[in-house]
Nucleic acid binder design. Sequence first.
RNA 1: GGUCCCAUCGUCCAGAGGCCUAGGACACAGCCCUUUCAAGGCUGCGACGCGGGUUCGAAUCCCGCUGGGACCGCCA
Length: 445
Amino acid sequence: MTEVRVRFAPSPTGALHIGGGHTALFNWLWARHNNGKFILRIEDTDLVRSTKEYEQTIMSGMVWLGLDWDEGPDIGGNYGPYRQSERLDIYRDYAEQLVSEGKAYRDGEAIIFRVEPGQDISFRDIVYGQIDVMSDGLREKDSDKLKDIVIIKSDGMPTYNYAVVVDDHMMRISHVIRGEDHISNTPKQILLYRALGWEVPEFAHLPMILGKDKKKLSKRHGATSIYEYRDMGYMPDSMFNFLALLGWSAGDDREIFTRSEAAEWFELSRVTRKAAVFDFDKLNHINQEHLKRLDPSVRLGMVRPFWVEAGLPVADVEAKRGVKYLEDALTLMEGRGRTAKEMAEFSDYFVSFEPVKARWNADGLDKDKLRPFFGAVFSSEWKAEKLEEAARSWVGGHEGAKMKDYAMPLRFALTGMKVSPGIFEVAEHLGREECESRLKFYGLL
RNA sequence: GGUCCCAUCGUCCAGAGGCCUAGGACACAGCCCUUUCAAGGCUGCGACGCGGGUUCGAAUCCCGCUGGGACCGCCA
């Protein structure tokens, strides 16, 4: 069996979007599953829209997702160059060859490939199966005229359908894995492979990703670029996991997995044919699951930037109480919040008293009634179990007193929140000194 | 207009003729747990688009219809 070589070939005319990330991901999975090579090729033949900045952005998006490539414009490889704009001579040479063989003709500066009728250009797609097409089907829009294929544009640049064939062949691509929107381009490319006398690679088309309204994902659906998800607090592991599940499954109930597990289990033959809807609820759930499984130190790394962004003195706290204090705070938060950003918002009181004060209001609070309770709690050893014990025995000793009537004010005073982890755990972690100072600030102690 | 593709719960996936009174996950509803909210546990709601075949038997195979989608650019 020949080596598996696949490629992701974005054009640097925009950021890495969800659809692109999905395609790149499946290529990566197939390469890694087969111990093959994953190649990054930049298709920058659209002179006006391509920029180096976008090329950079796309690469950093892939790095964020954890998709590393083995050959590419930045690291080179044996089949470069990996930027189409640097391969112009190659395209030119083969185009001239086609002209000299009478298979293509000139039209001004452009070179056009002649499409002969009556040819069977069917192919077998790994995902979609047999796709039957005749060259007679290649017609111009709203016309019955057969359409020849432009291969070199008037500006000297190759067209997509032509460059892709030349590059995939020369880069020894074994499997062309790309979006379903390319199925109808494939027969044209097969024509070119045949004219050039080259072996046709395997094709595997991937289902499209749709928005909630079942229309192709676009700006209207909100976040479409990968980075927006990073900024919202989604983790690359989750994004990877979620995207992998769009159009593929391991065949059983395994839904939460790592990159290497996915690579191990992945099979092109298990890819679905139906377009998939991008569902935020599912993404949220997957993110939450990954957030739960994270190492404390990694989790802190995810959440920290959002605390900093909110203007909280994270560095000070780290210096004063140690990194472990923050890590443990987040361990307490486990299962709360579906994104790192939410988790940061829900736990700000561990970092600073300021946001607590900002949320505070004393409406309906009977401080005189509360003080004896807090006094009893503070007379206990500063351990969650002991604190709870003290609280329960105080409540038990006062006719008609209910735990929630006391625990809730305590929670609100300490956190400024109506919801939090167990309040005695929170108190223990905050520490006696800090709790005392917070309660005293409000005159509750 | 032409060519091609798709069609199982609201959504993502299982299902490759009998194991399906169609399974799991998300979402939703309820219950349990409980100092709150999550998490967790349990229960419920909920789908094979329609019509013909083939077969002893069809979600699974075939045909038609309907409904979606992609492409038809000197964009990729």
